[in-house]
């Protein structure tokens, strides 16, 4: 299924990563996580670890709970009133319910499926988070905005039109702007919720490049419907089905020798 060149690359990546993993600390520890929306249980008894400076891809068919799982990590689910959660999510051994929610969300940035620039200029979109966390100096602000836009591979395309409305950018540019906005507050973890679902292949490649680069600095959790994307960028891959974590392993193992039949079926495209 997976093409040989890609596969080889994967082995190289994960090979390099094997050594890193030893020194990598555990970022998230999740113990017996259960989540309900009203009467429906959408996450069932999930236990896992997410390590620093890794890309964890989360795959699974629709309604498998992967987005809910992701939004549990930065407590964004709590905007729903009928939401209930048991079990524990620990960020560096600290229960996330004990962390002030604004502080938690600053540490854990999120990029959404649809690019959603704020109704502000390009500059202000990036500066928004920086300002919010206390930076006021104009010069400092400009430096930081440029630096972050470069990180998101967007600077060259927008440097002459920073004061234009963010809505004038193309979809791919908007998504990279949202990534820049997220990076601007210096998070430790970045959650990507199907970040490329609305993008063309070239924009997708740019976003993926950026993600692979980011993991030097951040921990990344990527929810994706695109199994090939998981194979391309993920160090590890988790397969969710009906709210259960079926399997979590190194990406190449998930795609070449999965332990569970259901995982095998899904990555081979037999369902989902």
């Amino acid at each position: 299924m997976v093409n040989p060149v890609r596969n080889k690359k994967l082995e190289e990546t994960s090979g390099r990563n094997n050594q890193e993993t030893i020194s990598n600390g555990v970022k998230f520890e999740i113990h017996d996580l259960n989540i309900w929306f009203g009467p429906a249980q959408v996450i069932k008894h999930v236990n896992m670890e997410i390590r620093s400076n890794e890309i964890l891809s989360v795959i699974g068919p629709a309604n498998s709970g992967k987005t809910t799982f992701l939004r549990a990590l930065n407590r964004l689910n709590e905007l729903n009133t009928n939401y209930r959660i048991t079990g524990a999510i620990e960020l560096e051994r600290e229960d996330i319910r004990g962390i002030k929610v604004e502080e938690l969300r600053r540490k854990i940035g999120m990029v959404f499926a649809l690019p959603l620039p704020l109704p502000l200029s390009i500059f202000d979109n990036v500066a928004y988070g920086i300002r919010m966390h206390g930076e006021r100096g104009k010069k400092k602000l400009e430096e930081k905005v440029e630096e972050t836009l470069r990180q998101a591979y967007l600077w060259e395309e927008v440097k002459d039109r920073l004061s234009e409305s963010a809505f004038k950018l193309s979809g791919g540019q908007q998504q990279r702007l949202c990534i820049a906005r997220t990076l601007a507050v210096r998070p430790e973890v970045v959650l990507f919720d199907e970040p490329c679902s609305g993008l063309d292949p070239i924009s997708t490649a740019k976003v993926e490049d950026a993600m692979v680069k980011f993991k030097e600095k951040f921990t990344i959790v990527l929810v994706t419907n695109n199994v090939k994307q998981a194979a391309r960028v993920g160090d590890k891959t988790a397969f969710f089905l009906n709210g259960e974590l079926v399997e979590l392993d190194k990406t190449d193992r998930i795609f070449t020798a999965p332990q569970d039949k259901r995982t095998d079926g899904y990555v081979r495209g037999k369902f989902g």
């Binding site: 964004l76 905007l79 940035g109 959603l116 704020l118 109704p119 919010m132 997220t182």
Partner: peptide
Amino acid sequence: VPKTYKEGAFALGATHWQTIHRVMLPA
């Protein structure tokens, strides 16, 4: 105002009031 704006601001670590006055009111 689309719910997504609000989520976007919250996801950046904005407080409720920051979200209201920097995102909701301008939008």
